[in-house]
Amino acid sequence: MTEYRRHRFQGGTYFFTVNLADRSQTLLTDHIEILRESFRTVKQKHPFTMEAIVILPEHLHTIWTLPEGDDDFSLRWRQIKSEFSRHIEIAEKISNSRIRKSERGIWQRRFWEHRIKDENDFARHVDYIHFNPVKHGHVTTAADWPYSSFHQYVKRGIIPANWGGVAGLENDLNLG
C-alpha cells in the first residue's frame, strides 16, 4: 500500500475540502456559530490567513495562507474539528475504531488539500468556492448563500454582486 504524503510548503497557500462523515447531515450550517468560534479559537493559537471560505451543510472549502516558516495545516484542522465536536451533542454513530481512538464520528478523518501555485490557480479556486452553493443547488446565485466569503469579496469591489448566477458558469471554472 502506498503511503499518502501531503505536499507541504512553509508559508504556503492551500485550498482545502473538509467533509462530515455523514454527508446527509447539516451540522455545519445548523451550528454555524460553533464552527465560526472553532476557527477563531484555533486562529488565535495557530495563526493563518483565511483567503476565502464557503460553508455548506455537510462540507466546506477554504483557502488559507500559513505564516512564513509554518506548514502545519494538519494541526489546525485537527484542532478545528476537535473544538467543533466538543460543542456538538453526541448523536452520531461512532464506529469501534473511532471509539478505540477516542474520536467522535462527526468528521471524515482526512481532508483534501491542494497547494495554490500562482495567481491564476488562486483565482480559479476562489471562484470554485464562491460558486459551490449554486453548484450544489442550495441557491440560484452566489449572493444568496450567507455562509461564504463571497460577500466580503463584493464589499471590497473584487467581484460584482451579481456574479455566480449565470447558468453554465461551473464549466468556466475548469478545475478539472
Rank of each mutant, 00 (worst) to 15 (best):
M1P: 09
M1I: 14
Y4D: 13
R6D: 02
F9P: 00
Q10K: 14
G11V: 05
G12A: 04
G12C: 06
G12H: 07
T13E: 08
Y14H: 07
Y14A: 07
F15C: 02
T17Y: 01
V18I: 12
A21V: 07
D22L: 07
D22V: 13
S24Q: 14
S24A: 13
Q25A: 14
L27V: 11
L28R: 11
H31Y: 10
I34G: 04
L35D: 03
L35N: 01
E37I: 05
S38E: 03
R40L: 06
Q44D: 10
H46T: 03
P47V: 13
F48M: 14
T49Q: 13
M50C: 12
A52N: 04
I53P: 00
L56P: 02
L56A: 05
E58S: 13
L60N: 08
H61K: 08
H61M: 09
W64E: 01
W64Y: 02
T65G: 00
L66V: 05
L66A: 09
P67T: 06
E68M: 06
D70R: 11
D71T: 04
D72S: 08
F73T: 00
L75K: 13
L75V: 01
R76P: 00
Q79S: 09
Q79E: 14
I80T: 04
K81Q: 05
K81H: 01
K81D: 03
F84E: 05
S85K: 11
R86F: 01
R86N: 07
R86K: 10
I88A: 04
I88W: 02
E89D: 10
E89F: 00
I90W: 04
N96D: 14
S97A: 10
R98K: 09
R98G: 03
I99K: 12
R100G: 02
K101C: 09
K101N: 14
S102P: 02
I106N: 04
Q108N: 07
R109F: 08
R110P: 01
F111K: 11
H114Y: 04
I116E: 05
N120V: 13
D121L: 04
F122Q: 11
R124Q: 12
V126D: 07
D127S: 13
H130G: 05
H130M: 06
F131L: 14
F131I: 02
P133L: 08
V134R: 08
G137C: 13
H138F: 15
V139Q: 10
T140H: 14
A143G: 04
D144K: 12
W145I: 10
W145H: 10
P146I: 09
S148T: 12
S149H: 03
S149E: 08
F150I: 10
H151N: 12
V154W: 02
K155W: 05
K155S: 15
R156P: 01
R156L: 14
R156A: 15
A161G: 10
G165C: 09
A167T: 11
L169A: 11
N171C: 09
N171P: 02
L175E: 04
G176C: 13
